[in-house]
C-alpha cells in the first residue's frame, strides 16, 4: 500500500489552501484517501497528517469518530439500508433482513468477493421514498425485496458503473475557481449567460404551456 498518488496529492494540497487553518482539510482529505485507496490505510493517514500538520494518531482519532470514514478495508460498494423511523414504518427493518440474506453478511460485513459491504444506516433524508437504500451515497428507493435484488444483481454486473462511482463522496466535486477569477472570465460568463437566460426562459415557458 502507499499514500496519495501525484494527482491526488495535488488535489489534496489545493483543498488545504482553501482554509485559514490547515487542519480543517483533515476530513475532506480523508474522503480523497478513500476515493483513491478504498479506505484509510496507515500510509494514507500518514500522508494526511503530513499535509494538514497533525500526527497520524490525530488523523486516526478524528476519523474514528465518523461513520463514513473507514480505517479497515470495505467493499467496492457500500450498501446502506436505512432502518430509521420513516423507513422502519415502511418496512426498512424487513428490507435489512432480506439484504442480509441476499448478500450473506450481517451489517458491517463484506462479501467474500470484496464487492459489497452491508451497513445499517441512520436516516439518509430520502424519507419520501422509504424504505431507502444508499449505495456509495447514491440513493435508491422505495425498494422492495425484489427491486433490492435487482439493484444488487445490476451492481454485480457493472450496470451502474457510471451512476455509482467509488465511495469517495468528493469524487465528482471539483472546485475550479480561486478567490480571484480573472475579470475577462467574468465578463465572458455574463455575456454567455445573457444568451443562456433567454433560451432557458423560453424553454421554461414552453414547458409550462405544454403542461
Amino acid at each position: 500500500m502507499s499514500g496519495f498518488s501525484q494527482i491526488m496529492r495535488r488535489r489534496a494540497e489545493s483543498l488545504v489552501e482553501l482554509y485559514p487553518e490547515r487542519r480543517s482539510a483533515l476530513i475532506p482529505l480523508c474522503h480523497l484517501a478513500q476515493e483513491e485507496a478504498g479506505y484509510l490505510s496507515e500510509d494514507m493517514m500518514r500522508d494526511i497528517a503530513d499535509l494538514v500538520g497533525v500526527t497520524p494518531a490525530e488523523v486516526y482519532g478524528t476519523a474514528s469518530f465518523y461513520d463514513m470514514l473507514h480505517t479497515e478495508p470495505v467493499g467496492k460498494y457500500l450498501v446502506g439500508v436505512c432502518t430509521n423511523i420513516a423507513c422502519l414504518l415502511q418496512g426498512g427493518g424487513e428490507l435489512l433482513e432480506h439484504a442480509e440474506e441476499k448478500l450473506g453478511v450481517s451489517p458491517g460485513g463484506t462479501t467474500h468477493d470484496g464487492v459489497f459491504t452491508l451497513e445499517e444506516v441512520e436516516c439518509v433524508a430520502h424519507c419520501d421514498k422509504a424504505p431507502a437504500v444508499q449505495v456509495n451515497y447514491r440513493f435508491f428507493g422505495p425498494l422492495t425485496d425484489e427491486t433490492f435484488d435487482e439493484l444488487i444483481d445490476d451492481l454485480s454486473v457493472g450496470k451502474y458503473e457510471g451512476d455509482v462511482p467509488s465511495h469517495g463522496t468528493l469524487i465528482r466535486v471539483h472546485r475550479e475557481v480561486g478567490i480571484e477569477v480573472p475579470m475577462e472570465e467574468i465578463v465572458a460568463q455574463r455575456r454567455e449567460s445573457d444568451a443562456a437566460i433567454a433560451s432557458r426562459k423560453a424553454a421554461l415557458e414552453a414547458a409550462k404551456e405544454s403542461k
Partner: peptide
C-alpha cells in the same frame, strides 16, 4: 452532510458558476 454526494456536486458546481458570474 457527507452522505449527500449529489448535493456536494451541485453546491460546488453552483459555487464555481457564481464565481465566474462575478
Amino acid at each position: 452532510r457527507g452522505e449527500f454526494a449529489l448535493g456536494l456536486e451541485r453546491v460546488q458546481a453552483a459555487i464555481n458558476e457564481a464565481y465566474r458570474y462575478g
